[in-house]
Amino acid sequence: MKQTILGMIEAGEPLLLQAIEAMRQHREAEAAGKPLAEIERLRLLADSLYQAVTYYHPRAIADGSQTLH
């Protein structure tokens, strides 16, 4: 189990990378003029991943021992 702040942040790194990739795909879809349904799907995915990152990191730093249900 990761015990340092850096360790807890590193544990969330894959999630952060997924969020960044989803945002990139959304922007590319807009720029390419993809169908609105596809753009909206990618926007929702990017938003969801971004929210997960912003929810995870402060809690991991505050107290990595707490379990969130």
Rank of each mutant, 00 (worst) to 15 (best):
T4D: 12
A29K: 04
Q25Y: 07
L44V: 05
A37N: 06
M23G: 01
A31G: 15
L15P: 08
S65G: 02
V53D: 14
S48E: 13
A52Q: 15
I61H: 10
E21C: 14
T67K: 02
E10I: 04
D47P: 05
E21Y: 02
L49Y: 14
R41A: 10
L42Y: 01
A37P: 00
A37F: 00
A52V: 02
A31S: 12
I20L: 08
M8D: 03
Q51H: 04
H26M: 11
E38W: 09
H26N: 13
G64I: 01
G7Y: 06
L44G: 12
R24N: 06
I5F: 03
Q51F: 00
A60H: 05
Q3W: 05
A52I: 00
S48F: 04
I20A: 06
A37V: 06
L17D: 13
Q18C: 14
A31L: 14
A46W: 06
A22D: 09
A11G: 12
L68H: 10
R41V: 03
E40T: 07
G33A: 03
H26G: 02
A37T: 07
A32Y: 09
A37C: 00
P58V: 00
T4S: 13
Y55Q: 15
L15T: 06
Q18L: 15
R43H: 09
A29L: 15
L6T: 03
E10V: 00
A52D: 13
L49F: 14
T4H: 09
A60N: 02
E40P: 01
H69V: 13
E38M: 13
P35T: 04
H57I: 10
A62P: 01
L45T: 08
I9Y: 02
Q18M: 14
Y55R: 15
